[in-house]
């Protein structure tokens, strides 16, 4: 459900940037989202179309770039891929993996006119 708030957050950023950078319309939005950001890409697409209706980004294309999850195992010190928070370290089997990438939830770039 909070994908709706996330989309409202995106729209606020777009409106602020439009004022600052002097563009009138947004035609495309590129987001970077990690698997541990707590956001469902499909739900986000669904909400995005609804939230931007009647705004400067009505009809904008939403592109989602998935950032792979990564962490460092606190036990064996290896850099390892992470898909879910409770995954054990694939090298030593320990559970103390500190997340370094995968929690990203940010707007990378915009196509504007």
């Amino acid at each position: 459900m909070h994908e709706m708030s996330i989309c409202e957050g995106i729209l606020q950023v777009l409106e602020k940037e439009a004022g600052r950078q002097g563009f009138q319309r947004v035609k495309g939005v590129w987001l970077e989202i990690g698997p541990l950001a707590g956001v469902e890409a499909e739900a986000l697409r669904f909400c995005f179309d609804a939230v931007v209706r009647g705004s400067l980004a009505e009809g904008a294309q939403l592109e989602i770039i998935e950032i792979p999850g990564q962490g460092v195992c606190l036990q064996c010190d290896q850099s390892v891929p992470v898909r879910q928070r409770f995954d054990p370290c694939p090298v030593c089997g320990g559970y103390g993996v500190r997340i370094t990438h995968g929690e990203e939830l940010r707007i990378k770039e915009l196509e504007v006119e």
Binding site: I6, G9, I10, Q12, V13, E17, Q21, F23, L31, L105, R106, I107, K108, E109, L110, E111, V112
Partner: peptide, 13 residues
């Protein structure tokens, strides 16, 4: 294209 690199929850933060 404009690069903005902004956290979406930045305002809440």
């Amino acid at each position: 294209m404009v690069q903005i690199e902004q956290d979406i929850l930045g305002k809440n933060d």
